[in-house]
């Protein structure tokens, strides 16, 4: 049997990283928003489980974009 493939290895899954509290503060200050204004990602999302993020964490998602090359997107991990 073939070894199990990691979900994060799939080409269409962008890189997800957990932000540190300092980085979160910096992010919210740059955009002048509160944490609840961020887009969300569910706690039971497969990628969230894979990287071991918890409710309340902010994930930095590095997407490859058709127009800008690379873009960053942020999602707040929430309970469903």
């Amino acid at each position: 049997m073939k070894e199990e493939i990691k979900i994060t290895d799939h080409v269409i899954v962008p890189k997800h990283e957990i932000l540190t509290p300092d980085e979160i503060k910096h992010l919210l200050d740059t955009y002048k928003i509160s944490i609840n204004q961020l887009p969300r990602i569910a706690e039971d999302d497969v990628v969230v489980k894979e990287i071991g993020a918890n409710v309340g964490d902010v994930l930095k998602i590095t997407r490859s974009s058709h127009t800008a090359g690379v873009t960053h997107y942020y999602r707040l991990v929430v309970k469903e």
Binding site: I12, V13, P14, V46, V47
Partner: peptide, 19 residues
């Protein structure tokens, strides 16, 4: 790692919302 499908809900379930 390159398997593609056109079923959006299935992708959300197996590869996450970003995919």
């Amino acid at each position: 790692a390159r398997t593609e499908t056109n079923d959006i809900h299935e992708v959300a379930k197996t590869l996450g919302i970003e995919a």
